[in-house]
Amino acid sequence: MTNSVAGSPPQMFAQVSGRQGALADVAVLMPAYNGQADVERTLASFAEDAPLYALIVDDGSAPPIVAPNVPGMQVEVVRMAQNGGIERALQAGIEALAARGFQYAARIDAGDLAVPHRLAKQRARMEAEPRLAALGTWTQVVNQAGEPLFMLRPAADALTLRRTRLLIAPLVHPSVMLRVAAVIDVGNYRVQYPAAEDLDLFLRLMERYDCGNLPELGLYYELNEGGISATKRRKQITSTLRLQLRYWNVLNWRDWAGIAKTLLHFVTPYRMLQKVKRAWFGRGV
């Protein structure tokens, strides 16, 4: 793993203490594999009233990701020696942020867009509630043309998220701000559950900490239907089922329903599932 930084030598980013502003302890964390234009568009979408720092974990892109010049933002690129998947990229990213002294990691994926002042709102809530280890937001899902498809509105409070965690995704991963120390405490991102690394992390965090959501729009998530491969989808469903069986509470009917829902995904075509989501979430449910 090697480092490169836009406009400054790597040693200038060794510690967070030298940075200024209300978001000095927050880092945007973005894994990326190719897609230079998407990386640039996503980082440019951040609008905050303080300087920002962003860490891109380049997961073996060819050509390598180049740190874009974004006004008001310092951008560092950590390069993985080879493509190892998002799980390893995020693991390396959290380790790098912990070493640099950051308290919060604000997740986003290349191609998604941040709503203005998302980071300030999330940090304020997490500062006020020290038990919060992860805080997401509502998310508008859009197609590649930017047209709205449906809105994801996960529950705001920790208790509801614990009750429904195996039935409904508790947080939208690219919208989440994470407390770096808590992520390290529970073992960081892991590779044991391919394509479900986010659910694996959230379930472990919920065993020791609280997770929540801001009940307002914080992210525009781009759904690339043509980019979903059958192999990755099947891995995700399998990993999700393994996690559900591991955390299954036989006294919670929602856990039973969640397992049934996952089993149904095995036999339901992807595009049909997207139609169901648009019909269901589009009604504001």
Rank of each mutant, 00 (worst) to 15 (best):
V28Y: 00
I259P: 01
E129G: 06
A230S: 15
V70F: 01
F266D: 03
K121H: 12
L245C: 14
N69M: 08
N69Q: 14
R208I: 09
L43E: 00
L29Y: 01
R246H: 15
E95G: 06
A89T: 03
P116D: 06
A257Q: 09
L161S: 07
K235L: 14
A128D: 08
P215L: 07
A279R: 15
D112P: 03
A134R: 00
S17K: 11
R278L: 08
D59S: 07
P10H: 07
R79C: 04
N249F: 00
R163I: 12
L217E: 05
G85S: 13
A54F: 06
V142H: 05
A62C: 11
R179A: 08
A279K: 13
D38M: 11
A120W: 02
D198N: 10
G84P: 03
V142W: 01
M12W: 15
V186F: 06
A196N: 06
R190F: 04
M30N: 08
R125T: 15
N224T: 12
R79T: 07
E87V: 06
L203V: 12
T160F: 07
R125M: 14
A156P: 07
G101Q: 03
L152H: 06
M30E: 06
W253R: 10
A133W: 00
W280D: 09
L119P: 01
V77W: 02
F150E: 04
A133S: 04
A14F: 13
P170G: 09
V267P: 10
Y221V: 00
L223W: 04
V57I: 13
M80A: 07
K121L: 13
A257I: 04
T137I: 02
W280C: 12
A47G: 10
E48A: 09
I259H: 02
A98L: 03
N188F: 01
I184V: 15
A44G: 03
G72S: 03
V142T: 10
E40F: 05
L201M: 13
N34E: 11
L251C: 04
L241E: 12
F46K: 04
R234D: 15
R162L: 11
G258L: 08
I86C: 08
R165P: 03
R271S: 14
L263A: 05
K275P: 06
A182F: 01
D185S: 12
Q74A: 12
E222K: 13
A22S: 12
A27W: 00
P51A: 12
R283T: 12
V78W: 05
S8E: 15
G136P: 00
A44H: 07
L97W: 01
P215C: 09
G218H: 01
S61A: 14
W280P: 09
A110S: 14
A54G: 13
S45V: 02
K261N: 10
P148S: 11
Y247V: 05
W253I: 15
W248S: 09
Y53H: 12
G60N: 05
H117N: 09
S229I: 11
L273Q: 12
R88T: 06
M126E: 03
R271P: 05
A128T: 08
